[in-house]
Design a protein around this nucleic acid. Structure first.
Lengths: 332, 332
DNA sequence: TGTATTTATGAAATCGATTCCACATCGATC
DNA sequence: GATCGATGTGGAATCGATTTCATAAATACA
């Protein structure tokens, strides 16, 4: 592959002039311009992006961290991020943690080794290691839908506490009093999903309902988890089963409802099921999901704006509306 | 950020020795090793990936091209590719064409400017430009589920002709004689989906059924397209409506079925609907989809094996089973 | 006419790693 | 005691672009 100095030699000019041509600098004579153009075509020359990156100390690469890209919520979020960043001339890399701290750490390291100009973290597995890297490079990292209590770290935060409360109150208004809860994280620990957990606890307290450990399900993520959850519910004696369940993802709700129906349990008559995310297919299921809508496009906008302005670009703030909204359908 | 020469200076050694340390070369004295280690920790040093890339002339980045990542089939395919490539130490970049030739060309160029070591193309918009770049870098490009008639270009090819024929014969065996067809591409042109189109044509000929232009729908991709398709079907006079439709993606089928049901048209009684891909939620829909299953994990294995062996790695051939299989459920 | 500014150009330094080459030391072998 | 191979080390060249600096001609301005 040809290099800039071969072009320079062939065109009978210096490398400086070729570089100027490539970067649309003024002050090049039409004559040399033509010669350079010819040489570039003749040698089928394309500048090496890596060399430019080394010199410029930027890569135009942005990394996006999600737990699983196959979760349709993350798919849609990633899609929105990719489209928007691509518009600004960035290449986007995804990395999936699959809930593994070690992968996350490897990913964060790419900001240190300068492989990526910035990171958008839509899943955080290990807040401590994120915190450490983020403090070192606060301008290069944006948290999306995650939060770490540090004023230096930029984060796009939505009110999941309120949304969860809204969902639970919706169930309550429909007469449900035995409300189970399924979370993607850990119910007792801090961190991921903590606000939603708090909302569940506070709701129970407000309504003077007891917290029943049989009705709390942790580490639930996939359709398969939802199916398994159905078995666990069925395993409970009939008089100790919940009459509703608030899940933290449409995927769980989807697997759960499918398995319940197969077992002859009616949704929402026997058990009302609420999803979360409002994934694209939520409206098309056997039982269309009642769920919490996340404003994905707006979230992506906010994150991209935050990151790129920190990286030195001047954009107009889109000021997106980041409210979470309950979407009533049939499942609850 | 510290550089290798700062480390060398602080440790009182040459940069060569530091580099040797970083790359686990033998022939370093324990004494210097310790000094280097100390310096690296003291200065919080991480080697610049870009500098290494420039020197090595490889990036360890692989690009994956899809039309839309939000198509669950591509999501799953990308997920499989990402996981496998990541296991081999590669970073993966996605690019979406959104059916735009210009984007595709920009993406292909990244192989020329050395941003990526290899590309896996799971969508091809413009065969001509792909062909050109692929001929120049035949070892760096693998087509997945696409084909270009050039023996030098590696491609993972599945028998979509047979699968489509199987699907159509399935519909025929169930008594359908008025079978419509929806494709993601262009029915008349060569290229994307051509084999499936041929199968449809051949099927009609074999069964002595006429080709009805009202029953052929092109450029159908999304759920929304499927919904719109439902309107078009309803717009036909009742006696000229099809009794079945073979779609080229579960998403179309999903949107279509949802809209048909809403309009009081029964599936499969009034119209049988076949999907394609067997996307994860296909089994959970209001009407579970009868569809063609694509062996995604195996396809990804095959593509990764092809690409990485061409890039010089020695892997054992997974010899995956790439057969497409019809999955009967309720929609047809 | 003389000075300042704009236009135009290229050699060489630079980004931060790896690697070629030259050289030194050590123990083993004949 | 000379020779050979293994071990250990660092200076300088290299990857391919950009940018600094020096320089010079052409033009504008007084």
């Amino acid at each position: 592959m040809a290099t800039i100095s071969e072009i320079a030699k062939r065109a009978g000019v210096g490398t400086t002039t070729v570089s100027r041509y490539l970067n649309h600098h003024p002050y090049i004579s039409a004559e040399k311009k033509a010669k350079i153009e010819a040489a570039i075509i003749a040698l089928d020359y394309t500048p090496s992006a890596i060399a430019t990156q080394l010199r410029h100390q930027t890569t135009n690469n942005i990394g996006v961290l999600v737990s699983r890209i196959t979760n349709p919520f993350f798919t849609a979020l990633f899609d929105a991020l990719e489209r928007q960043l691509h518009n600004y001339g960035y290449q986007v890399m995804v990395m999936q943690t699959y809930d593994d701290e070690h992968s996350e750490r490897a990913f964060l390291n790419q900001i240190k080794n300068k492989q990526m100009d910035g990171l958008i973290l839509a899943s955080v597995e290990n807040p401590a290691s994120v915190l450490q890297v983020a403090q070192e490079f606060p301008k290069r990292i944006v948290l999306l839908n995650e939060n770490i209590a540090d004023p230096n770290i930029r984060a796009i935060v939505l009110n999941h506490y309120q949304a969860t409360l809204d969902g639970l109150n919706y169930l309550h208004a429909r007469g449900c009093r035995r409300i189970a809860y399924a979370t993607g994280g850990d119910f007792s620990q801090k961190g991921h999903g903590q606000e939603r957990n708090n909302a569940y606890r506070d709701f129970l307290a407000q309504q003077h309902l007891p917290e029943n450990p049989d009705w709390i399900f942790q580490q639930q993520h996939t359709i398969a988890d939802g199916q398994h959850l159905a078995q666990q519910l069925q395993a409970l004696p009939k008089d100790r089963r919940p009459d509703a369940i608030f899940t933290n993802s449409d995927e769980i709700a989807m697997g759960l409802i499918g398995a319940l129906m197969k077992a002859g349990i009616r949704v929402p008559e026997d058990i009302a099921v609420m999803g979360y995310d409002d994934q694209p297919m939520a409206a098309y299921l056997e039982v269309p999901l009642t769920t919490i809508h996340q404003p994905i496009e707006e979230m992506a906008q906010a994150a991209v704006y935050q990151l790129l302005t920190c990286l030195g670009q001047t954009l107009t703030d889109p000021k997106p509306d980041l409210t979470l909204k309950l979407v009533p359908r049939s499942s609850a």
